[in-house]
Computed example of a mutant assay.
Amino acid sequence: MMPQPTGRLVRKDDGVFVVLDRIFKAPIEDVWSWFSRSPRLAEWVGEYKGLPSTGALKFRMNAEGDGAEWGDVSILECDAPHRFAADVGPAGASFRVFWHLKEASSHTTLTFGQRLRSLKDEAPSMGVGWDYYLDRLLAARAGKPMPDWNDYYPDMLDHYETLCRELDQDIRREQVALHAVNQRAAGD
Protein backbone atom coordinates (compact mmCIF):
# COMPACT_ATOMS: atom_id res chain seq x y z
CA MET A 1 0.00 0.00 0.00
CA MET A 2 1.33 3.40 -1.00
CA PRO A 3 1.73 6.00 1.76
CA GLN A 4 -0.77 8.84 1.86
CA PRO A 5 0.01 12.51 2.58
CA THR A 6 -1.05 13.58 6.06
CA GLY A 7 0.10 17.19 6.39
CA ARG A 8 -1.89 20.35 6.57
CA LEU A 9 -1.01 24.03 6.54
CA VAL A 10 -1.61 26.02 9.71
CA ARG A 11 -1.44 29.79 10.02
CA LYS A 12 0.03 31.05 13.28
CA ASP A 13 1.03 34.50 14.48
CA ASP A 14 4.61 33.87 13.35
CA GLY A 15 3.88 32.38 9.92
CA VAL A 16 2.53 29.39 8.04
CA PHE A 17 3.55 25.93 9.16
CA VAL A 18 3.29 22.54 7.52
CA VAL A 19 1.93 20.38 10.36
CA LEU A 20 1.67 16.60 10.60
CA ASP A 21 0.43 14.22 13.30
CA ARG A 22 1.32 10.67 14.23
CA ILE A 23 -0.10 8.48 17.00
CA PHE A 24 2.02 5.98 18.91
CA LYS A 25 0.88 3.22 21.25
CA ALA A 26 3.61 4.15 23.70
CA PRO A 27 4.23 6.31 26.75
CA ILE A 28 5.15 9.92 26.13
CA GLU A 29 8.69 9.45 27.51
CA ASP A 30 9.39 6.71 24.96
CA VAL A 31 8.27 8.87 22.03
CA TRP A 32 10.24 11.85 23.39
CA SER A 33 13.39 9.70 23.45
CA TRP A 34 13.18 9.24 19.65
CA PHE A 35 13.62 13.01 19.33
CA SER A 36 15.97 13.71 22.22
CA ARG A 37 18.53 10.88 22.19
CA SER A 38 20.98 11.12 19.32
CA PRO A 39 21.32 7.33 18.77
CA ARG A 40 17.54 6.95 18.44
CA LEU A 41 17.20 10.12 16.36
CA ALA A 42 19.88 8.75 14.04
CA GLU A 43 17.74 5.69 13.30
CA TRP A 44 15.19 7.78 11.42
CA VAL A 45 16.29 11.33 10.61
CA GLY A 46 19.69 12.51 11.79
CA GLU A 47 22.06 13.05 14.63
CA TYR A 48 23.15 15.86 16.85
CA LYS A 49 26.27 16.73 18.78
CA GLY A 50 26.63 19.05 21.69
CA LEU A 51 24.78 19.42 24.95
CA PRO A 52 21.09 20.27 24.64
CA SER A 53 21.23 21.99 28.04
CA THR A 54 23.36 24.77 26.46
CA GLY A 55 20.53 25.65 24.06
CA ALA A 56 22.72 25.16 21.01
CA LEU A 57 23.59 22.02 19.04
CA LYS A 58 24.84 20.86 15.67
CA PHE A 59 22.49 18.65 13.66
CA ARG A 60 22.89 16.64 10.48
CA MET A 61 20.19 14.79 8.57
CA ASN A 62 21.74 11.39 7.93
CA ALA A 63 19.00 10.19 5.57
CA GLU A 64 20.13 12.87 3.10
CA GLY A 65 23.28 10.91 2.25
CA ASP A 66 26.91 11.03 3.30
CA GLY A 67 27.37 14.61 2.10
CA ALA A 68 24.83 16.11 4.52
CA GLU A 69 26.31 19.05 6.37
CA TRP A 70 26.08 19.88 10.06
CA GLY A 71 23.78 22.80 10.81
CA ASP A 72 23.32 25.03 13.82
CA VAL A 73 20.36 24.47 16.11
CA SER A 74 19.15 27.14 18.51
CA ILE A 75 16.75 25.66 21.03
CA LEU A 76 13.91 28.09 21.72
CA GLU A 77 11.75 25.92 23.97
CA CYS A 78 12.25 22.57 25.63
CA ASP A 79 9.62 21.35 28.06
CA ALA A 80 10.42 17.63 28.20
CA PRO A 81 8.56 15.45 27.39
CA HIS A 82 5.85 17.73 26.02
CA ARG A 83 7.11 20.60 23.86
CA PHE A 84 10.14 21.53 21.81
CA ALA A 85 10.89 24.36 19.36
CA ALA A 86 14.12 25.29 17.61
CA ASP A 87 15.58 27.23 14.74
CA VAL A 88 17.72 25.01 12.53
CA GLY A 89 20.34 26.37 10.13
CA PRO A 90 22.40 29.53 9.77
CA ALA A 91 21.03 32.90 10.90
CA GLY A 92 18.88 34.44 8.20
CA ALA A 93 18.33 31.09 6.48
CA SER A 94 17.16 28.98 9.40
CA PHE A 95 13.85 27.22 9.65
CA ARG A 96 11.67 26.84 12.73
CA VAL A 97 10.53 23.38 13.81
CA PHE A 98 8.42 22.28 16.73
CA TRP A 99 6.97 19.13 18.13
CA HIS A 100 4.34 18.67 20.79
CA LEU A 101 3.56 15.38 22.50
CA LYS A 102 0.36 14.57 24.36
CA GLU A 103 -0.39 11.29 26.14
CA ALA A 104 -3.87 9.86 26.72
CA SER A 105 -5.24 6.31 27.07
CA SER A 106 -1.75 4.75 26.67
CA HIS A 107 -1.22 6.50 23.33
CA THR A 108 0.99 9.47 22.56
CA THR A 109 0.06 11.95 19.84
CA LEU A 110 2.89 13.76 18.08
CA THR A 111 2.18 17.06 16.35
CA PHE A 112 5.19 18.12 14.30
CA GLY A 113 5.55 21.36 12.36
CA GLN A 114 7.96 23.41 10.30
CA ARG A 115 7.51 27.10 9.49
CA LEU A 116 7.60 27.86 5.79
CA ARG A 117 9.41 30.75 4.22
CA SER A 118 7.45 30.42 0.98
CA LEU A 119 4.21 28.70 0.06
CA LYS A 120 5.28 28.29 -3.55
CA ASP A 121 8.95 27.41 -3.32
CA GLU A 122 9.32 25.10 -0.36
CA ALA A 123 5.98 24.08 1.12
CA PRO A 124 5.18 21.15 -1.21
CA SER A 125 8.57 19.48 -0.84
CA MET A 126 8.70 20.12 2.93
CA GLY A 127 5.34 18.45 3.41
CA VAL A 128 6.39 15.41 1.38
CA GLY A 129 9.71 15.28 3.22
CA TRP A 130 8.17 15.32 6.68
CA ASP A 131 5.60 12.67 5.74
CA TYR A 132 8.58 10.54 4.67
CA TYR A 133 10.66 11.21 7.79
CA LEU A 134 7.81 10.67 10.24
CA ASP A 135 7.03 7.38 8.51
CA ARG A 136 10.73 6.52 8.94
CA LEU A 137 10.21 7.18 12.66
CA LEU A 138 7.28 4.75 12.70
CA ALA A 139 9.39 2.14 10.90
CA ALA A 140 12.39 2.60 13.20
CA ARG A 141 10.24 2.25 16.32
CA ALA A 142 8.64 -0.93 14.92
CA GLY A 143 11.93 -2.43 13.70
CA LYS A 144 10.61 -2.45 10.13
CA PRO A 145 12.43 -1.55 6.88
CA MET A 146 12.67 2.12 6.07
CA PRO A 147 10.14 3.47 3.56
CA ASP A 148 11.28 4.23 0.02
CA TRP A 149 11.51 7.94 -0.87
CA ASN A 150 10.28 7.13 -4.37
CA ASP A 151 6.91 6.13 -2.89
CA TYR A 152 6.54 9.70 -1.58
CA TYR A 153 8.08 11.94 -4.19
CA PRO A 154 6.69 13.12 -6.57
CA ASP A 155 3.38 11.33 -5.86
CA MET A 156 2.51 13.43 -2.78
CA LEU A 157 3.41 16.78 -4.31
CA ASP A 158 -0.10 17.39 -5.64
CA HIS A 159 -1.60 17.22 -2.13
CA TYR A 160 0.75 19.89 -0.80
CA GLU A 161 0.61 22.04 -3.94
CA THR A 162 -3.19 22.08 -3.65
CA LEU A 163 -2.99 23.11 0.02
CA CYS A 164 -0.60 25.93 -0.92
CA ARG A 165 -2.80 27.20 -3.77
CA GLU A 166 -5.89 27.19 -1.56
CA LEU A 167 -4.14 29.01 1.29
CA ASP A 168 -2.60 31.53 -1.10
CA GLN A 169 -6.06 32.26 -2.53
CA ASP A 170 -7.47 32.70 1.00
CA ILE A 171 -4.68 35.10 1.92
CA ARG A 172 -5.20 37.13 -1.26
CA ARG A 173 -8.97 37.37 -0.64
CA GLU A 174 -8.31 38.54 2.93
CA GLN A 175 -5.86 41.16 1.68
CA VAL A 176 -8.37 42.46 -0.88
CA ALA A 177 -11.10 42.62 1.78
CA LEU A 178 -8.78 44.39 4.23
CA HIS A 179 -7.74 46.86 1.53
CA ALA A 180 -11.42 47.60 0.79
CA VAL A 181 -12.12 48.18 4.50
CA ASN A 182 -9.11 50.50 4.78
CA GLN A 183 -10.20 52.41 1.65
CA ARG A 184 -13.69 52.92 3.07
CA ALA A 185 -12.24 54.04 6.42
CA ALA A 186 -9.91 56.49 4.68
CA GLY A 187 -12.84 57.94 2.71
CA ASP A 188 -14.91 58.66 5.81
Rank of each mutant, 00 (worst) to 15 (best):
V16T: 14
F17R: 03
F17S: 10
V19Y: 01
L20H: 12
R22E: 00
R22T: 02
R22N: 01
R22W: 00
I23V: 11
I23F: 01
F24I: 04
F24Y: 08
K25E: 13
K25D: 13
A26E: 03
A26N: 06
A26S: 12
P27E: 08
P27A: 10
I28M: 02
V31R: 04
V31K: 05
V31N: 06
V31Y: 04
V31C: 08
W32S: 09
W32I: 06
S33K: 11
S33A: 15
W34H: 04
F35W: 15
F35K: 13
S38P: 12
R40H: 09
R40C: 03
R40P: 00
L41F: 13
L41T: 14
L41V: 14
L41E: 12
A42C: 08
A42V: 03
E43Y: 06
E43K: 09
E43R: 09
E43F: 06
G46H: 00
G46T: 02
E47F: 04
E47V: 11
Y48T: 09
K49E: 12
K49N: 07
G50C: 10
G50Q: 07
P52S: 01
S53E: 07
S53T: 06
T54L: 08
T54G: 06
T54R: 05
A56I: 10
L57F: 00
L57C: 01
L57R: 00
L57I: 01
K58R: 05
K58I: 00
M61C: 15
M61R: 15
N62T: 14
N62E: 05
E64I: 11
G65K: 10
G65W: 07
D66T: 14
D66Q: 14
G67K: 05
G67T: 09
A68S: 15
E69L: 11
W70Y: 11
W70A: 12
G71C: 11
D72G: 06
D72T: 03
D72R: 05
D72H: 02
S74H: 15
S74M: 14
S74V: 15
S74L: 15
S74K: 15
I75L: 09
L76W: 04
E77N: 05
C78V: 09
C78F: 02
P81N: 08
H82W: 01
H82T: 03
F84K: 05
F84V: 08
A86M: 06
A86R: 04
D87A: 12
D87Q: 09
V88D: 08
V88K: 05
G89R: 03
G89T: 03
A91N: 05
A91Y: 05
G92E: 03
G92L: 04
F95A: 09
R96P: 08
R96L: 09
V97D: 02
W99N: 06
H100T: 04
H100W: 02
L101W: 00
S105H: 13
S105E: 14
S106V: 05
S106G: 04
H107Y: 08
H107I: 03
T108W: 00
T108I: 00
T108H: 01
T109S: 08
T109V: 07
L110R: 00
T111C: 12
F112E: 11
G113P: 12
Q114E: 15
R115L: 04
R115Y: 01
L116R: 10
S118R: 08
L119D: 12
L119I: 13
L119Q: 12
D121Y: 06
D121R: 07
E122F: 07
P124G: 15
P124E: 14
P124R: 10
S125Q: 10
S125Y: 07
G127K: 01
G127P: 00
G127E: 00
